[in-house]
Amino acid sequence: MAETLTETPPRQKLDGARQRLSDRDGFLAWIFLVPTVVYIVVLVAIPFFLAIAFAFSDVTSGNPSYDWVGLENFYRVFDDAVFWQALRNTFVFTVISMLLIVVLGKVLAMVLVADFKGKWIVRFLVLLPWTTPVALSSVTWLWLLHSIYSPIDWVLRNVGLIEENSYFLGRPALAMGSIIAVHVWRLVPLAAVIMMVGILSIPDDITEASRIDGAGFWRRMFEVTIPLTFPLIAVAALFGAIFTFTDMAVVYVLTGGGPTNSTHVLASWSFVRGIGGGDIGQGAVIALFLFPLLLAAAILILRAVRKMETI
């Protein structure tokens, strides 16, 4: 009888078990981690190891069967002048874009934290380039830079700065400039928002103290704002670099790698070789060259984040 009185009802038992599970940090950690791990394994790890496997194979777009060819694809890729051009372009686009993104992002962040009427609308508009899908915004830019219909040309012509159309995408230097401009246009808002968070997190009393001590705008900028927000500036720069380094949509839509392969980057050349040319092996080799820089960028981001945690 006594046993019957002390027995826990089944529903309470279940609730208890649930409570115990939800109290176990280890269990919860795994539950929360699983989606991320699955995502990374399926969409990052497996394709990455596949790319390594393909790089040593003779797989073509028409024949997925795997035959080992050793380093042959690497020799063929290195023997191709376009690969070296694409490698050089990737670094040039990334470095120039990153510098411009940081400088313009900082300027924009300063504007966004300032107090003025209609601030929220301005913030909304500024974010639009970042929120627009890259393929869509690239097509818009394709029309803005069009050889016949370009409104930019029309304006320049009407203010007397040019006599004939600029052919932005038909001249190598202008085509490269156009690609960099589009990257900067779409990534500056992201950088600005990241840096804005940094600026807003600086305690008012520090800014006030430096002002009382007689520091002007530039001195406050270089001796207070930038040092205190540096980790966030680094994160913005690295995000900008990664997005530029890995992107092929802007190049593919605007120039298709032309004129005469002069604007190809590793991602677009990998696509042309692997899909256009049907040589998956060579496409994989070219794509693998993205890995070392991305690894370095990832390490730097993690270090920057750790530094932020210790501030």
């Binding site: 050889s147 159309n165 052919y167 932005f168 038909g170 001249r171 085509a175 120039t255 032309g258």
Partner: peptide, 9 residues
Amino acid sequence: MTDEVFSWN
């Protein structure tokens, strides 16, 4: 011709 032929699509 003009340079537009290099950005032909």
